[in-house]
Design a protein around this nucleic acid. Structure first.
Lengths: 336, 336
DNA sequence: CTGAAAGCGCTTACAG
DNA sequence: CTGAAAGCGCTTACAG
């Protein structure tokens, strides 16, 4: 292995000077610099990142903390993960994946000193992992929000997303609109923030419309979708449209409705929020979706975090991006 | 930050002895050990992984090298990535994500000394990245295979998978079976190994059946699936069944066939190979799939690599796992 | 069974 | 503009 010492010897300088040119930390005379660069080239030297990390107490590694047993894996998650990894690499950082269930495990990992910063996925309204994160003193950015809006986060703007979905449906004459969310495996009142916030936005929109709300929470599976279809028919037969915040159940809802004699979109219009268009077009009829800005969020989260680490940042980032409507064939005029 | 020195002082021993008990590298007297463990507990000491890495020249970090612009992201990929990350953590390793396009970039990263080993995804028949990997002297395991079967790999057994799919279809009376694969953005003859091998297995099976082969390569999108449906109808109208090695096109194929007046499975039976069942049941009719063993492969690949790093291994791993048939509703009796 | 000491390959005040 | 040297927090022969 060729080290900085080898380069220094070949260029007839001290290792400090080599370090200065590699990092651009101090001015170096042009001739000296040229000699050093030549030596680096000739020896094919690459600085050891571990030694650098120890000496500078900056590892340039970021952790992506995600729940161990992912909810049904989906396109959005992989897009988010990959874009975060890509964004990190573009700025010279590495991203490690940390499946964490409990805060205990998280604290251990954080205390090891491997990472300079962390990204936390699937944030809940009250989230003990966030407390651990704060206690660890490792800088972080949340993907999603807790109750405490002051923490740095990037998130989907679910309120705007729901509003837009409702607006779109209203344009087709729908007024009785149901919401299908996802059951969480957590105490009520502590769901993932997205569910709480979307729920609240939905209730507001219905109140503004002067229509009664109809909310159904099912599992994020095809079976869950079928359950939703039946509940919809039995308990909310007046609903002519439904907004899903449950991608995993969307296909089942369409299939289940059809099996119950209700066609999409003739009898029931469907919008799947926070869903990849690639996913929507697999379904028949193609789903009208609100595309999750997964790729943007991944980059934004990483860049916000790195900005903080580099001290290039004043206020904690509070970034909200709404989903974008991508029309499919699952929304039609409200039945008379 | 509390260091090993702090622990040593509190326990009245040298830092070497602390290291011995933490790593279990040398026998330590019970009383001494107890004192040290107490000190660790009281100080809430956690060993600095970076310092350890530098001193031991083992970082305990693994890289997952994946193509930068993923083919259409799918459930299988995220399952693979997450299970690899999880498997690594269970053995005390971390997994970094490295999006790499060119070998150049890869060599730079590898030379930095951050990782002890690497996993390479989307391996092609002739793959320059593999050569870079070998040249870097970083231990690795391939996900997929090149021409050179001697390198360590884990892979889906596409031959067995195709055979099983053909067998299944034959059980329903099908003989004229088409294969739909995915266009690669690489020179012909250098596709991802899975396509070459599945293709070969398919040709063998058709030869054994004494039927002419019919192969269609389309993009892994809904549109690609539609193209396949049309090509199938126009160019291979005798085919009563199709095996897909192209998850992204499967939904489009079903929808496209229906649009052309051919119902699945009445007129055309469909099996989607290397596909997640969760995906299959989204489609109408539910797709009969060959489930990709993504989760197993992720763990196997990581464990094989770590075994090698730990010297717990003789021969390079050559692990092949076939997909498992999960019947849906897209396969029916061959039309008379 | 335990310790003193060298060393992993860098960065970074401090001096000149 | 450049260098000598301390130090990052560990591991690991080597000695005893």
């Amino acid at each position: 292995m060729v080290t900085m010492r080898d380069v220094a010897e070949r260029a007839n300088v001290s290792i400090a000077t080599v370090s200065f040119v590699i990092n651009g930390t101090k001015p170096v005379a042009p001739e000296t610099r040229a000699r050093i660069e030549a030596a680096i080239e000739e020896l094919d030297y690459r600085r050891n990142v571990v030694a650098r990390a120890l000496a500078s107490s900056r590892t340039r590694i970021l952790a992506l903390l995600h729940p161990d047993f992912e909810t049904r894996p989906n396109i959005t998650v992989i897009q988010f993960v990959m874009s975060a990894a890509h964004g990190a690499r573009e700025r010279g950082y590495d991203l490690v994946l940390w499946p964490v269930n409990d805060g205990e495990q998280m604290s251990h990992l954080l205390a090891g000193g491997l990472v300079d910063g962390a990204l936390l996925m699937e944030v809940q309204i009250r989230d003990s992992r966030v407390e651990r994160l704060i206690a660890s003193r490792v800088p972080f950015t949340l993907i999603g929000r807790t109750e405490d809006d002051d923490l740095p986060y990037v998130d989907i703007d679910f309120a705007a997303t729901i509003d837009q979905a409702v607006e779109h449906l209203r344009g087709f004459g729908h007024r009785r609109i149901a919401l299908v969310t996802q059951c969480a495996k957590v105490p009520p009142g502590n769901e993932p923030g997205r569910i709480m916030r979307a729920h609240a936005a939905y209730l507001d929109a219905m109140a503004a419309l002067g229509e009664p709300p109809a909310v159904i929470a099912v599992e994020g599976t095809s079976e869950g979708g079928r359950v939703a279809a039946r509940t919809l028919k039995d308990d909310f037969p007046e609903a002519t449209a439904v907004i899903l915040l449950n991608e995993g159940a969307s296909a089942g809802l369409v299939k289940g409705s059809r099996a119950l004699g209700r066609t999409v979109p003739d009898d029931l219009s469907v919008i799947s929020a926070s869903t990849a268009p690639e996913f929507g077009e697999m379904i028949e009829p193609s789903l009208t979706v609100m595309a999750a800005p997964a790729t943007q969020l991944g980059r934004l989260a990483v860049n916000a975090l790195i900005d903080k680490l580099d001290g290039v940042q004043e206020a904690p980032p509070h970034l909200l991006i709404p989903c974008a409507l991508v029309p499919g064939e699952s929304v039609g005029p409200a039945p008379a």
